[in-house]
């Protein structure tokens, strides 16, 4: 049986990290064995008493004491409520949920494409690779609206030392790289063509990234993305995160691109104008 009741989670600390965003340190009270088996890209459900419950991804994975980090951007009532909680506040925790990023796949050179807060779900993978725990050669391109909107300042500082980390802004200042991550694909692919792509960000950016990668010869089964959806139960019951015949909370949130296309179409095929012409 599933359990829809949260467990106790303590707010240990926080600091500002990007525009309207905060870096939170949290601790699961009395962690269980399963709490230590989190894979980067999975998510947890955070209850802010009185404000509701919402999914967030792990920025760092829980340690033996149940401590982990998360990055939260102020968006609506729940995140506003979280920002008002004092250090030491009791919050609610359920997790981990969903499928994380693939950590072992037949590729060595991997390109990570992140947009905005989409860098957060990828942080675990980047961390693992930068500490050489994964046999990956990682390149990262991170796009944001402008430099003030960039998140994970301390982590980026660290990553820049150990791997190829490229940053670009829609509204760039002098000396900053300008444009969307896609604008730099030619350069990235010319340097050393990746064999696989991991992508997280606004859905439009992810789909464009996938298409641009396909065009450059990367097979659909070597492209991964992570979907954001409204999630309430995280157990595939409440219905909100449907994608075709699946629920993103269980089947995702990470999807191999070919699988994503298949699932999205499986629920409800629609005729397009083009199909009709063919008939």
């Amino acid at each position: 049986m599933i359990d829809l009741t949260p467990r106790k989670l303590l707010l240990l600390d926080h600091y500002a990290d990007g525009e309207e965003a905060r870096h939170f340190s949290l601790r699961i009270d009395k962690p269980l064995a399963g709490d230590l088996a989190v894979i980067p890209g999975q998510f947890f459900m955070l209850t802010v008493p009185g404000f509701g419950e919402a999914p967030f991804t792990y920025l760092s994975l829980p340690d033996q004491q149940g401590r982990f980090n998360a990055l939260v951007r102020r968006m609506g009532a729940l995140t506003q409520g979280l920002f008002e909680q004092p250090v030491g506040a009791v919050l609610g925790y359920r997790g981990p949920f969903g499928k994380g990023w693939p950590l072992f796949f037949c590729a060595h050179r991997v390109l990570v494409v992140a947009g905005g807060c989409g860098l957060v779900p990828l942080a675990g993978v980047i961390d693992e690779a930068s500490q050489h725990r994964l046999p990956l050669q990682l390149s990262v391109i991170y796009g944001a609206r402008h430099s003030a909107a960039q998140v994970l300042g301390r982590e980026r500082e660290r990553w820049r030392q150990t791997l190829r980390f490229m940053e670009t802004c829609d509204e760039a200042k002098p000396l900053e790289r300008q444009g969307s991550p896609l604008d730099h694909f030619d350069e990235l692919f010319a340097a050393e063509a990746p064999e696989a792509v991991l992508c997280c960000g606004p859905e439009a950016l992810m789909l464009a990234t996938a298409e641009a990668s396909l065009q450059r010869g990367i097979a659909a089964h070597k492209i991964w993305l992570s979907l954001e959806r409204r999630m309430h139960c995280a157990d595939g019951l409440c219905g909100h995160c449907y994608l075709g015949t699946e629920y993103v909370c269980k089947d995702g949130p990470t999807y191999r691109y070919d699988r994503y296309l298949q699932v999205r179409g499986a629920g409800y095929p629609t005729a397009t104008k083009q199909d009709q012409r063919l008939c």
């Binding site: 404000f51 019951l237 409440c238 909100h240």
Partner: peptide, 9 residues
Amino acid sequence: SCYAPQDRL
């Protein structure tokens, strides 16, 4: 079978 949570203080 869809449902939504409703929190009440």
